[in-house]
């Protein structure tokens, strides 16, 4: 199984939100909605402070509850990988997958009504390209690749640097990692 992961370096991320922008243009995201977003976390007290930015999106979980919760199979893994996509033609818009997503990464596409989400830009991945957000990052803080390939950049980064993912305790096995 192809195991795609995204590795985001919080050390160099500057929180410019270019990833959100590039996603909107690439995927024609309906206005007002977004498939990815940037969180800014500040801890400490002036002047002892620390700020971290995190570009967040669907975690393309290896055990995705949105896929199991979908009553029609519209929410599915793409091509024997962990990339979660929604087949619009099978989607009823019942929103069970929205309720099932621990990362609140799903939304109702306006006006069609099917459920939209980050696709890891699977239309680019199929040609071996990086997702649009990764490709645009001006600080080169974002990386994408296959974790099942020990020679890949993402594998090396996760091997050599300390990292974390969001809420692994959900049991969903999220696949977006943040380097400290």
């Amino acid at each position: 199984m192809a195991h795609y992961v995204m590795v985001i370096d919080t050390k160099t991320c500057i929180g410019c939100t270019d990833c959100v922008d590039a996603c909107r243009m690439e995927n024609n995201v309906p206005e007002g909605l977004c498939f990815d977003w940037v969180v800014e976390v500040t801890t400490g007290r002036y002047p002892e402070l620390k700020t971290e930015f995190r570009s967040e999106r669907c975690n393309h979980c290896s055990r995705a509850t949105c896929v199991t919760a979908c009553p029609t199979g519209a929410s599915q893994y793409w091509n024997d990988s962990n990339i979660v996509v929604v087949d619009a033609s099978r989607c009823t818009g019942c929103k069970a997958c929205i309720a099932a997503c621990p990362y609140d990464a799903r939304l109702i596409m306006q006006p069609e009504g099917y459920i939209g989400k980050c696709t890891f830009c699977v239309h680019r991945v199929q040609y071996g390209l990086d997702p649009a957000c990764v490709a645009v990052c001006p600080a080169k803080a974002m990386h994408f690749g296959r974790l099942d390939d020990p020679t890949s950049e993402v594998f090396q980064l996760l091997e050599s640097r300390e990292s974390y993912s969001l809420n692994p305790e959900t049991g969903n096995e999220p696949n977006v990692f943040y380097l400290r």
């Binding site: 199991t68 919760a69 979908c70 009553p71 029609t72 199979g73 009823t92 818009g93 019942c94 109702i108």
Partner: peptide, 22 residues
């Protein structure tokens, strides 16, 4: 409440055993 009510028949194209809604 369905966002795509005309797709309601899709519920009966499959029994998705992991989905309570199915």
């Amino acid at each position: 409440d369905l966002e795509r009510p005309l797709h309601v028949w899709r519920f009966y194209s499959i029994l998705h055993v992991t989905s309570p809604m199915s």
